[in-house]
Design a protein around this nucleic acid. Structure first.
Length: 577
DNA sequence: GCCGTTTTCGGCCCGACTGTTTTCAGTCG
């Protein structure tokens, strides 16, 4: 059992305690212990054996005992007992925005609510508004929340779905006769969320491949769809779809299975216009197959340059491919740093030095630190004194090792409800001392669209603002973004020379790829920022690269794909306005 | 439950917002 699994159990114990109506501080102790263990670099099992674990700050007798039991037996008695005493449906109720463990405990105690269905029924019947501490507005908000959760049911974020796909690929790859196993569909196109995991297998014999599905852990309800395809239901409701293709038709099948539907339909139409017929079984001319050993050959036969899977969304990519005008997309290897990560100065888990070493280990040339600003008190936002201390540490690093990795001084400044940047009122020298500023909305999500837009537009006017952080505040599959007129924000960002971040956290991926072609056309730049709160978090930039590629962005559009001197010049230019 | 002492109980990241109240609990970031 590794540290991630132990931390997950400890955190779930915390949640279960809250749902039981326990002292919230007791629950917090378990969350805290989970965080500590997650951040350990040594071997947890070894720390348990030697008794060193219990000596670490944040780990006490109770949490150490859970860890010990997990390491030795793989299960925790406390965890099991709490699970038995708590309806599993309460976990989904916890997802409803505005409902915390405390009120869920009340709903469970007073109305017997134990699932999302129970909750919806009680709200529809008006029973929630009658409870002490609840009212009509809360009841309405609950119904909205339930509707949102229903609308995303069965969907998964890319990393979760991809992890499932990888394990399926591994299993099917071991089936005799399976020559190639590929992840296809929305996952291959790097969509931020998918409702199904799609796999294509190249084989002469579909039967053993489909039979192997039955033995996959966590898979239920396997259904055959003809002789060469099957679907199955995965734990938590997501779907798995596996199809097989013979070697001779694999390239066309891959193209078809990758989609999108719109892209495929456009390809079929283009084939027809060239006197050919494109089918999932292959490309035909006068009824005879046109030889094409891979996708690139198929595109070539259709007189197109190869279209990367990320661009196959039916948004003009065929016209561009026909004209040889597809962009050279930015790639992970192009990145030379990033500008939005946190350290122990605010709510990050790693020190500034550790983050810097991690950036070096990734082959980066620079790193921008942007801890939370003072207004984000919950996240340990920095006072002007903290900022000074941090800048001294950065100066010392740059003097000593700036030739290896240059550290930029940044801050993630809260955009206050009236559109001012944090520190702007009286402590402007804090903003002036930065190389760059990321401005983010972290409060007052409930403003009207007009007010929220006005707020962000005002922040864009601030000469210190370099990047707009996560511009909609969405959390994929759990929270809609706040209401905001993104087109107006893009226009203003273009005019003011403010770059808009691609927040690469896989829960955010904000701003959405669908807006980037328009933004790019208007001259808006971006930075692919991990919003990392730990060393591992730096690697989230990979997801952000996916967003940039889906948004047709190239190296010239992505500031953290530029060289050090170019970045310095960019920051200086922005500051001078 | 964990921490840290002016050591063995009192406080726990903290301020704003919302909806419920009529002074505040719950939620959120």
């Amino acid at each position: 059992m590794d540290k991630h699994a132990i931390a997950a159990v400890l955190a779930e114990i915390g949640t279960l305690l809250e749902l039981q109506g326990e002292n919230p501080f007791r629950a917090r102790a378990f969350y805290g212990a989970a965080r500590v263990i997650e951040g350990l670099s040594g071997d947890v099992a070894e720390l348990v054996r030697t008794g060193e674990l219990a000596k670490i700050k944040g780990i006490g007798p109770a949490t150490a005992e859970v860890a010990r039991e997990l390491v030795e037996t793989g299960v925790s008695t406390m965890h099991r007992e709490l699970r038995e005493a708590t309806p599993a449906g309460l976990f989904e109720v916890l997802e409803v925005p505005g409902l915390g463990a405390r009120r869920i405990h009340t709903l469970h105690r007073e109305l017997g609510i134990a699932s999302l269905d129970d909750l919806e029924r009680a709200a529809v019947e008006g029973r929630i508004a009658g409870l002490a501490g609840f009212g009509v507005k809360t009841q309405e908000k609950i119904l909205e929340g339930v509707a949102f959760l229903r609308s995303v049911a069965g969907r998964r974020r890319w990393p979760d779905a991809h992890a499932v796909a990888v394990s399926v690929v591994e299993l099917l790859g071991r089936v005799p006769g399976a020559r190639r196993v590929e992840v296809v569909g929305g996952l291959r196109r790097l969509l931020e969320t998918v409702d199904r995991v799609e796999i294509l297998v190249e084989t002469e014999h579909a039967s053993p491949v489909l039979a192997a599905l039955e033995s996959l852990p966590g898979v239920a309800e396997v259904r055959r769809a003809g002789d060469v395809a099957a679907t199955a239901r995965l734990a938590e409701g997501a779907m798995l779809a596996v199809s097989c293709a013979a070697p001779g038709s694999f390239a066309a099948a891959l193209l078809h299975a990758t989609g999108s539907e719109e892209h495929w339909a456009a390809l079929v139409e283009r084939a027809a216009s060239l006197g050919m017929q494109l089918t999932p079984g292959g490309l035909l001319r006068d009824g005879a197959p046109v030889a094409a050993e891979d996708e690139a050959a198929l595109y070539a036969a259709l007189e197109l340059t190869f279209v990367p899977p990320e661009l196959r969304e039916g948004r003009g990519e065929l016209e561009a491919a026909a004209a040889g005008a597809l962009p050279r997309l930015v790639a992970y290897e192009d990145l030379r740093g990033c500008f939005h990560c946190h350290t122990t100065y605010s709510d990050g888990r790693a020190t500034l030095r550790e983050m810097a070493e991690a950036a070096l280990a990734r082959g980066w040339r620079y790193l921008g630190i942007a801890d939370h600003s003072r207004a984000a008190a919950y996240a340990g936002g920095l006072s002007p004194d903290d900022v000074r201390r941090q800048h001294e540490e950065i100066d010392a690093w740059n003097e000593e090792r700036g030739h290896e990795l240059w550290i930029f001084k940044g801050i993630e400044a809260d955009i206050l409800p009236d559109g001012r940047l944090d520190y702007a009122d009286g402590d402007e020298e804090v903003l002036a001392s930065m190389d760059y500023v990321v401005g983010s909305v972290h409060s007052s999500f409930g403003l009207s669209q007009a007010e929220q837009t006005e707020r962000v537009l005002r922040a864009l006017e601030n000469p210190y603002l370099t990047f707009l952080g996560h511009p909609t505040g969405r959390l994929l599959l759990s929270r809609r973004g706040y209401a905001i007129d993104l087109d107006a924000v893009i226009d203003a960002a273009a005019e003011r020379g403010v770059a808009i971040e691609i927040n690469a956290n896989p829960y955010r991926l904000d701003m959405d790829w669908r807006y980037w072609r328009e933004a790019r056309a208007k001259g808006v730049r971006t930075a692919i920022n991990p919003d990392a709160h730990s060393i591992d978090g730096l690697d989230d930039v990979r997801y952000g690269v996916g967003v940039a590629r889906k948004g047709w962005l190239g190296v010239e559009d992505v500031v953290n794909a530029w060289g050090l001197e170019e970045v310095k010049a960019f920051f200086g230019r922005k500051r001078r306005g």
